[in-house]
C-alpha cells in the first residue's frame, strides 16, 4: 500500500542567475504526458522549480490576444528573465501590480527556449511573486550561496552531477568564485 504522503512537492532549488543562464539540458522524467520536466543545473542537480529573490528592474506587457508580462530580476551575479502569461492568471496579476524597481521573491519553473537564430534562452515561468525587503534578499544570497557550495561539495558523487559534468564540463572553482563574488555584495 502506498502511503498517502507519497506525493511530494518538488523543492524550489536556489540558484544564482549566472548559473541558470548556463543551463542547456532539459529532460522529462518518465513517458507520461504529466511527467515532470527537469533541467540539470551546471552545479549538478535536477530542478523543476526554483526560488529567487532579486530586484525587479523592468517589466513589460506583451501580446495582443494572449497577454503576458515579462520582467527582469537582477541578483548579484546577473539577470533572470521571468514571465507570467494567461495560464498563470494569479501570477500575472501579481506581477502587473508591482512597480519596478522593487525587491521581489519569485517561485517558478525554469524553461528553455531556442531563439530563431539558434540561441538558447532560459526563462522562469512565475508561479507566484511578491514584494519583499532587502533583508530577505540578503538571506536569499546566503541561502543560495550555501546550497550552491553544498552542490559543489557533492559534485561528481551523484548521478545528476555526473550528467552535469558530461553536458557542461562544469568547473567547480568557477562557481566557487561566482558564489564568493555574490557574497561580497551583501552589505553588513
Amino acid at each position: 500500500m502506498k502511503p498517502q504522503s507519497a506525493f511530494e512537492r518538488e523543492p524550489a532549488r536556489r540558484v544564482f542567475a549566472s548559473e541558470l543562464r548556463e543551463t542547456r539540458y532539459q529532460f522529462k522524467d518518465g513517458d507520461d504526458e504529466k511527467s515532470p520536466t527537469y533541467v540539470i543545473l551546471p552545479t549538478g542537480i535536477r530542478s523543476n522549480r526554483i526560488f529567487i529573490v532579486g530586484t525587479l528592474t523592468e517589466k513589460e506587457r506583451r501580446g495582443d490576444q494572449n497577454i503576458f508580462y515579462r520582467g527582469r530580476v537582477a541578483d548579484p551575479t546577473g539577470t533572470f528573465f521571468v514571465m507570467a502569461g494567461s495560464y498563470q492568471p494569479e501570477a500575472m496579476q501579481q506581477l502587473a501590480r508591482i512597480e519596478p524597481p522593487a525587491f521581489v521573491a519569485v517561485v517558478g519553473k525554469p524553461s528553455l527556449y531556442t531563439t530563431p537564430d539558434g540561441n538558447c534562452l532560459v526563462s522562469v515561468r512565475v508561479e507566484s511573486i511578491a514584494v519583499v525587503d532587502r533583508e530577505t534578499r540578503d538571506l536569499w544570497v546566503l541561502d543560495t550561496a550555501r546550497e550552491t557550495l553544498d552542490r559543489l561539495d557533492a559534485f561528481g558523487t551523484t548521478d545528476d552531477s555526473r550528467k552535469a559534468q558530461e553536458e557542461y564540463g562544469t568547473q567547480p572553482d568557477l562557481y566557487k568564485k561566482i558564489v564568493y563574488d555574490a557574497l561580497t555584495q551583501v552589505q553588513l
Binding site: L142, A145, R146, L149, D173, K176, K177, V179, Y180, L183
Partner: peptide, 14 residues
Amino acid sequence: ELASLLNRAGGEPA
C-alpha cells in the same frame, strides 16, 4: 553566517 560562507567559498584559492 556571511563570514563563514565567505570563508567556505574563498577558502581555497580558485
